[in-house]
Design a protein around this nucleic acid. Sequence first.
DNA 1: TTGTAGGCGTTATCAC
DNA 2: GTGATAACGCCTACAA
Lengths: 349, 349
Amino acid sequence: MNKKAKSTLFSIAEHLKLSVSTVSRALNGQSEKYRISKKTTERILKTAAEFNYRPNQLARGLRMRRTHTIGVIIPDITNPFFSEIVRSIENAARKDGVSILISDSNDQTDLERSAVQTFTSRTIDGLIISPIGDESDHISELNQSSVPIVLIDRSFDSLCLPFIGSDNLNGSKEATRHLISYGHRNIGFLQGLQRSSVNKDRVKGYIEALEEAGIQPNHTLIVGDSFGEESGYISTKLLLNSKKDITAIFAASNPIALGAIKAIHEEHLSIPDDVSIVAFDDQSYCNYFSPPLTSVAQQTRDIGSLAYSFLAESVAGITTDAPKNIKLPTKLIVRNSVKNIAYQLNKST
Amino acid sequence: MNKKAKSTLFSIAEHLKLSVSTVSRALNGQSEKYRISKKTTERILKTAAEFNYRPNQLARGLRMRRTHTIGVIIPDITNPFFSEIVRSIENAARKDGVSILISDSNDQTDLERSAVQTFTSRTIDGLIISPIGDESDHISELNQSSVPIVLIDRSFDSLCLPFIGSDNLNGSKEATRHLISYGHRNIGFLQGLQRSSVNKDRVKGYIEALEEAGIQPNHTLIVGDSFGEESGYISTKLLLNSKKDITAIFAASNPIALGAIKAIHEEHLSIPDDVSIVAFDDQSYCNYFSPPLTSVAQQTRDIGSLAYSFLAESVAGITTDAPKNIKLPTKLIVRNSVKNIAYQLNKST
DNA sequence: TTGTAGGCGTTATCAC
DNA sequence: GTGATAACGCCTACAA
């Protein structure tokens, strides 16, 4: 009550004329184990409350090599896809009393690397990361120092680490098929960061769907280099001005789609009459667009909570041999941003 | 190179047959001060690099009472307004080598309180928080234990703490005036969390603008209890079905607006012909809505970076007497979600 | 049933 | 120029 000063085990022990160890044990619920008298235990608990005692987690972490803190590194917290994942991770972590150190890598390898190092020096119990994808040394190094890692959204071919994300290949395929079934053959693909696994899979799905339909993929229709709005805007401008007779656009992310729409408007083209559009990742606002945006929904919340569960298991030392490589199915949400032009389709194969 | 084991000052010292202190000093750039020979310094630096030495921040923090970690507590990281703030805070913090512990309070006081406590026990150097607003004991307690705090977006009447946010009163006034100038008199106000200072200011601005125009505010037109999408949806349903002859709606946040739009669509009403809408906070997607959404833009990035600067100053012990209570001006972005019905306006005052 | 002592990795103070 | 030594606050063998 009148104690404003920081209270430690020592201050409590001193006050009670007990030893630090006894206080520590009682406060850690080990009274039974150490047969500390009920009376003593209660006195300790009481004064601890009075003193408003909070264990110093730095000291505890130093001693226990366990901080109840995990690191989360994502490429863009501004993208609702990731912020939702962060939220679900935190909701899960909170129940375990685990805090979250966060870092936005902005898809820059050097930032990612330094985030990993900073977190490491702060002793995290585990790491959830959506890696850029080009370099893996800093990650494998962390892994070798036996800090559990879970990959989300993007995986690593080289590293064998638990992964949880979407089935990008099939999600992309389905969306492309949708476009094709509506008569589109010249489909521009607005890709994201090229070296990321998500992007590779999405491009692959797009190409496979095309081939499957007997359409020869045109690699000059695949443009872009980042998942951000900028890239979508620029790529679309490029595509639209290159006389490729694009009838549809597939955006590899939601921000990309935003940029694309901006560009389309600027070119005084209309969606879907002049150009159709589909986006990977669905957000609640997609429904209110003009026209409502057809998109590929991901199970965002599950990605976050599963990632945390996996990590928590590893941290706890539980090693299930269950394959920790989960690709959650996606779902195509058909709205009105794709025009059916099948009637004007002339066979070309 | 071949050293996989964790390297500490001790391991380096041992290897070099030096004392831990010398190594520590050299590594902290205090060679000059302690007149450590150039040669020794270099040997130390070299083996430190070889050993891939990273100081243990727990130990350092324990000793120095300084962790280079700050806490950030916000009500909803899923709201782009906040995620953008978080990003700009991190960008600023990174330059100082400061890490960020994050927590989403979900506008629940108990979560906020426990986040503050968890962070405290982890020894943060400072806290940036957008407080719920109903209880302040946990915050003032932290403040009294001399941990610097900066408030963002929402302030506290009771506590005198540095604050940085928007000029909500005038932002709200301006938007309401816009509505009024377009002939609207029955304007529903979709408020957010009632006990939050942002909400109070926004309601106040709305009312003042009304009164200013000689319109008697109708308190039954002010509905809602949270900044989330749900609340916007429900409130709008309520408003629309209550035969209040609403011609326009002012949403106190972007998510609220999303919910409102959903409800409006469900009622088979059209924007802006049947009901006009304005939202507080602008997001890039607002421009692509059907119709493009008129909204009040905030200087999100500045809020984050300024908040960090303020905090960093306090942490460094710099106490400028400059008034740390900043309300950044907002800007009304007029698009097409408000219909001009001024012609059918019949005088009533 | 409780206490003692050592150590987690750093930095600061004093000594030589 | 460099080295002991004592904290920082906590946990945990090992004693008693």
